[in-house]
Design a protein around this nucleic acid. Structure first.
Lengths: 159, 159
DNA sequence: ACAGTCACTTCTTTTTTTAAATTGACTAAC
DNA sequence: GTTAGTCAATTTAAAAAAAGAAGTGACTGT
């Protein structure tokens, strides 16, 4: 990872991206939401190399996104589970899924989401917590904090 | 990109990830939502190398996520803008931002979102379109389509 | 005893990424 | 009218990362 060590004052999007904005990492997290817990299953279901899988799992564990849970002592065996921080990536995965379904999908959607509370198959979307309306790009405006704005202006001037 | 060429029957999340699930790509898209349009600004604001930026912009253009818009003929100059497909990545970026704010943030949030319609600063979240309630990981269940399920079982068996 | 499973690690080759320099078509300053 | 600067790249060489194959160690099951 080239930018995992971003300073703490940096944009939180950049830091989120440095932790989980990577092809294989996102696939691992997706697999976890689908219930995959073991090394070999990740290997086979994602098609990634064992070298890379071991490395990514270590990184995710170090970041607190997943944790290793032993399920056998002899031989030492363990499975990988999402922590709360990891489960909180759900919105990211779902957003990617909706986008993929819309722009890259065929007729059938390979994964459908059911809202347990109402029992319906749904396509969750981003909503304004205040007025309850759906929000998309054109409904929103971004404000930069003063310090962040200054940082960006400095970056733009200094090559 | 190792897996940009995923077959069309593959999971849409995997294909979304193959198109935009990359550190620099996500940072470019984030910059676009913040209004950045020009090569040099992307360079300075993200800190990436010009080689990689050119490559990523080319890929994103080929995928239809961004488009080049000429703003000067002599010298030939153009800016990069999100297409509808690109703007539709808003939910992904916002989900990453919320996650970053919650798990990697300090006290001040560098970017705040205002809902134009109600004028309030908000933290958008995923909602069930049917009952309107907020959905998170534990409120949802995933169903795999029959063909997708079979595909996964085959993958699990065949190394 | 021998094959098989699981969770890796090691090794070699190939591909990407970085970093720095260069290009080309201008524009604005001296 | 030479020189510096901007913008959007491309080129090249060196460093880092990933892919792919094979191996390891602690078992289990036959």
């Amino acid at each position: 990872m080239s930018r995992s060590d971003l300073p703490s004052h940096t944009c939180t999007i950049a830091r989120a991206v440095a932790q989980v904005g990577d092809e294989w990492t996102l696939l691992i997290v997706r697999e976890m939401f689908l219930g995959t817990r073991r090394f070999d299953d990740f290997l086979r279901l994602t098609g990634m190399s064992s070298h890379l899988l071991a490395q990514r799992l270590k990184k995710l564990e170090a970041e607190g996104v997943i944790r290793r849970a032993p399920y056998s002592e002899r031989p030492p065996r363990h499975e990988y589970r999402l922590t709360e921080k990891g489960r909180d990536l759900w919105a990211v995965i779902i957003a990617l899924k909706q986008w993929g379904d819309r722009w890259l999908g065929t007729d059938d959607t390979p994964v459908q989401i059911t809202h347990k509370a109402c029992g319906k198959v749904v396509r969750p979307h981003m909503t304004c917590p205040d007025c309850g309306e759906r929000i998309e790009a054109h409904d929103a405006e971004a404000q930069l904090s003063h310090t962040f704005e200054l940082e960006r202006q400095a970056a733009r001037r200094a090559p």
